[in-house]
Structures are given as structure tokens and as C-alpha cells.
């Protein structure tokens, strides 16, 4: 199958501190990958490099056939193809939920307003908050906000979705409603890279598991194998703490 994301020997530093060390990773279309690992291990940095919110210093990152580098002219085009969901939702507080969703399709994809709003409503329906469309983000619960953020990303009709700990800022009773939406999305065939510690979710949807520690990919394995028979001691330790 065609690789939609390819990372080769990616290295990244913040000043002298090396966050990513020789990262190799490839993702095929429609694959779902879950990344886990202790805090500060570089998970966020890794997925943020994929839509170039962070710049890597060494190695190659190719997304959907385009290599990301300083010379990449169409970085906006790549970003439009890669949806991102943040831990802190990052909805636009000055816009209604509907406007949050239709803004980028109108201004980036240049769709007519009517069509963009139609798409927005469809996606809001998909995450089951179409009844909240005219409210402002501040009026929604955390779970609803995160679902709105997912809908906003989906409105750009991305080929890839990146999730950076989407449920970590949520109260426990709201985690499920967000995970349900993500499971649904996975079943619909979206290519997904998810940083999460929700292992139930991982077992249900992930094709591959990746365990990161200190900027390295320590283990990459099929989900079943990863949980039943992890190879590295560090993975075992981590899993024993988290499960």
C-alpha cells in the first residue's frame, strides 16, 4: 500500500536538547497508529513535525508525496490536508461553533459560504453537536468542545488526522463521548495518528502501537503483539504502570 507519511532518520533539537532521535516511521493510507510513552518523551513534537508546526533539523519527512523542508512552498496546502486535534481544543472563542467549522473551508478552500456551512453542519451532525452549532465555544462542555474541534478539522476533508492527547484535558465522564467519535472516524477509514494513553481505545482501533521514550521510538508493533508480548523492558514497565 502507498505510504502517505514517511519519516526517515528525523532528528530535532530545542537549542541543545535533542527531542527527537533518529525517528523512522511510515504510515499507509487508512492506517491507525497510536503513540504512547511517558510525558516529555517527544510524542507531541513528533506529530507536530508532521504538519510542520515544528521544524525538524535533520532527516526527511514526506507527507502525501511532498517533502517538508524550509523550501516547501505549499506548506499551507499540506496543512489543509492534515487535520489536527489539540489537547486544549484551541477552538476560536470569538466565533460560533458553526463559524469555527466553516471558516477554513471558506477562506482556505474558497468554498462558497453556503456550501461550507452545509459541510460544517454535516460534520457537526457526525460528532452529534449539530444542536450546538450557533453557540460559542465558551458555552459548551469540554467534551462538546473537543468534538467541535474534531468537526472543525474534518470540515477541511483531510486525508490524515493527528490527535495530540485529545482526552487528557477532559473530565472522566466526557472522555467516552470523544473516544466514540474517534472510533467512528477510524471505522470510516481515516488515516489517524493518535497520541493517547487510552489503551482501551488503542486496542479497539490501532493497527500499530508505538512506544516512545526520551525522543526515540523504543517499540513499534502490531497492537495485539504490543499488549500481549512487548519486547522492551521499558515498554513492559510503562504498560504495567498504565494498565
Amino acid at each position: 500500500m502507498a505510504k502517505i507519511i514517511e519519516l526517515k532518520k528525523v532528528n530535532k533539537w530545542f537549542d541543545k536538547f535533542q527531542v527527537l532521535k533518529d525517528i523512522d516511521l511510515d504510515v499507509s493510507s487508512q492506517e491507525k497508529i497510536v503513540i504512547c510513552g511517558p510525558s516529555g518523551s517527544g510524542k507531541s513534537t513528533l506529530i507536530r513535525c508532521i504538519n510542520r508546526l515544528e521544524e525538524h533539523q535533520e532527516g526527511n519527512i514526506v507527507v502525501d508525496g511532498t517533502e517538508l523542508s524550509e523550501n516547501t512552498k505549499n506548506i499551507e496546502k499540506i496543512r489543509a490536508e492534515v487535520g489536527m486535534v489539540f489537547q486544549q481544543f484551541n477552538l476560536f472563542p470569538h466565533l460560533s461553533v458553526l463559524d469555527n467549522c466553516s471558516l477554513a473551508p471558506i477562506w482556505v478552500k474558497k468554498l462558497p459560504k453556503k456550501q461550507a456551512e452545509e459541510i460544517a453542519m454535516n460534520n457537526l451532525k457526525r460528532v452529534q453537536i449539530d444542536d450546538q452549532a450557533l453557540k460559542f465555544p465558551g458555552q459548551l462542555s469540554g467534551g462538546q468542545q473537543q468534538r467541535a474541534a474534531i468537526a472543525r478539522a474534518l470540515c477541511m476533508e483531510p486525508k490524515i488526522m493527528l490527535f495530540d492527547e485529545p482526552t487528557s484535558a477532559l473530565d472522566p465522564e466526557m472522555i467516552k463521548e470523544v473516544l466514540d467519535v474517534m472510533v467512528d472516524l477510524a471505522k470510516g477509514g481515516m488515516t489517524m495518528i493518535v497520541v493517547t494513553h487510552e489503551m482501551g481505545f488503542a486496542k479497539e482501533v490501532a493497527d500499530y502501537m508505538i512506544f516512545m521514550d526520551e525522543g526515540k521510538i523504543v517499540e513499534r508493533a502490531k497492537t495485539k503483539e504490543f499488549f500481549e508480548n512487548p519486547k522492551s523492558d521499558r515498554t513492559k514497565l510503562f504498560l504495567s504502570q498504565i494498565l
Partner: peptide, 30 residues
């Protein structure tokens, strides 16, 4: 403004001018 606002705008494919005009300035000026 929180950094997340810039990042969210960028991640949706908005360039410098669009993200400032649509997302950053309306909030900052307010």
C-alpha cells in the same frame, strides 16, 4: 493570546495574513 490559537489557525491551512486577519487580530484587538 494563547499560542494554541496561532497553531490551530495554521493547522487548518491558514497562512500568516489569513490567520492574523481572521483569528488573531479580532481577539487581540478586542
Amino acid at each position: 493570546l494563547p499560542k494554541g490559537q496561532y497553531e490551530a489557525a495554521r493547522s487548518l491551512g491558514m497562512g500568516y495574513w489569513k490567520s492574523n486577519y481572521l483569528i488573531i487580530l479580532p481577539q487581540a484587538l478586542k
